[in-house]
Design a protein around this nucleic acid. Sequence first.
DNA 1: TCGATTCTTGACCCGCCGTTCCAATATCCC
DNA 2: GGGATATTGGAACGGCGGGTCAAGAATCGA
Lengths: 196, 196
Amino acid sequence: MARPREFDEDQALAAALEVFWEKGYEAASVQDLTERMGIQKASLYNTFGDKHALFVRALAAYSTDTLEWYRHQLERPGPVRATLAALFHELTDGCDDEDDDCRGCLCVNSAIELAPHDPAIATLLEQHNQAQEELFRSALVRAQQSGEVPVSLDTLAAARYLLNVIAGLGVAHKAGASRDWLHDTVRFSLSVFDRH
Amino acid sequence: MARPREFDEDQALAAALEVFWEKGYEAASVQDLTERMGIQKASLYNTFGDKHALFVRALAAYSTDTLEWYRHQLERPGPVRATLAALFHELTDGCDDEDDDCRGCLCVNSAIELAPHDPAIATLLEQHNQAQEELFRSALVRAQQSGEVPVSLDTLAAARYLLNVIAGLGVAHKAGASRDWLHDTVRFSLSVFDRH
DNA sequence: TCGATTCTTGACCCGCCGTTCCAATATCCC
DNA sequence: GGGATATTGGAACGGCGGGTCAAGAATCGA
């Protein structure tokens, strides 16, 4: 019963996500955001509240998408080791394409920049980590059931370990590590599962 | 031949480091800095140039100190596995003390926040990483010579792997991981060396 | 067609940002 | 003590930060 929006909310959110992803929260100005979202300041504030609320929504969307991606990767049939190798390959591949501006992982970036001083972000990231941990754990448990991995393996610790490796890769990528660097690290990291 | 400084430069630099470490580069205002350094703005600009130059010096100092710490940890005699265990224990211990404000590792923080868009920082971090890598590698080579570790071990990949684990821990700590979480991850990470 | 309602536009606000300037001050050498 | 030289304190700067507002434009139900 009134004038409708001229822009697509999800699309605008996706654009905001890009900006935050590339620049970080503090360094992304409202001007940067509105320009990339293709909307005016007032529209941003009417629709999303303020910069912080917009960031929370962007991060939540990122979390959802990312978890979906991990679920898709991890629920593929076949031996877990191959699955993990493929997952990490996907993760590190294209890191030398200079179009990604070394964005890394937004969760990692936000953990570093905001988590200690921002309870809302900290909570969101905790949920994300737990969900991601659970995905890895499930895959490992399935591998135990199929006999690929010994039942003596501490699947929780292993899942956390994998999350830690991924976080490290995010940092290394930001620091300018080459694809070879990352691949070496991945190979070595996954070798833990070779002889257990 | 002129009025002398009323403050100690190194001491002021150390104070600035604290601020950057706690808040990050962008979020640390010049006012925050001068307050904690106990000096006036003009003194800051006279002595260090500007905020960015101050940060570079602070990061360089941090790098030096940290590398010294790693060297000290890694050059202790005894089996490498015990050395690494002790090092990581030192690293993760005291992470639940609420006085550290989850500062994490300044190199990791800076890699995330600045490296992709700041060549000076990127260079500094690259040098730091290479030096740290070399320290770990040396320790592993020594372990090979003493027979503790098989010569088939790719010491370069292993060193990079360890750096990656450490970076991951920095992220996890920022994200609010408990000491148990970190210890589990460390234990699992070091288990790679148990059966090689 | 018309009023109600919502969105868009673009100017505008205040405050803090990093930075500069200058007068006052303290020290050194002579 | 007296100049030369640097540092200090504090005010001031322009600019940009996030956020608001008022007026016009577009759509709806009636």
